[in-house]
Design a protein around this nucleic acid. Sequence first.
DNA 1: CTATTCCATTGACAGGCGTCTATTCAATGG
DNA 2: CCATTGAATAGACGCCTGTCAATGGAATAG
Lengths: 130, 130
Amino acid sequence: MAVELELAPKTKRPAGECCTEPLVYPDINGEQAERMAAIAKALGDPIRLQIVDVLRKHAGKVCVCELVPLFDLSQPTVSHHLKVLREAGIVDSERKGLWAYYYVIPSALEELGAWLPGCCPPESCNCDRA
Amino acid sequence: MAVELELAPKTKRPAGECCTEPLVYPDINGEQAERMAAIAKALGDPIRLQIVDVLRKHAGKVCVCELVPLFDLSQPTVSHHLKVLREAGIVDSERKGLWAYYYVIPSALEELGAWLPGCCPPESCNCDRA
DNA sequence: CTATTCCATTGACAGGCGTCTATTCAATGG
DNA sequence: CCATTGAATAGACGCCTGTCAATGGAATAG
């Protein structure tokens, strides 16, 4: 920890432009940021996070009628959250008769997961993440 | 993929309670969901995601005056995003004279990162994630 | 002391979000 | 054909969010 990189001297003159030339740049481009932020935004609600958690655990398909009683919410509200997740590309659904079964699209979370640190300590990982 | 777990028969009677007993449960509790959702929510904006990306790359500290010109936003707006990230516990700042230096709190992203899949393929990982 | 500079805060505004009730739609059962 | 049931949609409501211009506060330079 505490890498102390000290990017720029910058202790000189408070006058003039603070940093004559930009020294840092985003490493991810705008589209990547948009995509990952959209995923993160959809996960940015405790209910939706738990829905995704449930769907992931049961890799098969889970009926909406099983989801609703898990949360102290009305059925339309749960349906709304599912719609948000569907529009974010995180889940998809399949109708069988009267019931709708939802499941997580596995690849949807990968880009964000790869960007985030901490899936496991680096020394136990062979991936090339920084 | 396509585990086809088929959690419940549920092809029987459309009448009566659809699922007499709940068969799935969230595996994470409410507090975990709240914490992770708060982090995800803070990351749910492309600007903030890129800010975190920049701060992470330069593990030392980055001056606000370097951050502002990177985005086509006013200085108060960037300051606002930094405040959101600070209140989410993702970053912290340190003042040195006139300048404010921001840095990522490494542990902040760990819980969410561990929950998400895809940091690397499971076979290259020794972690115990499902 | 005064002027300047960096950053944070305030207040305003439009748009988005989470929730509900009420309604609609599609499929099944009798 | 009609009644019933699971799920999605519509509309309404209060609150939160992202943005900006304007202001304020702390530290430095002269």
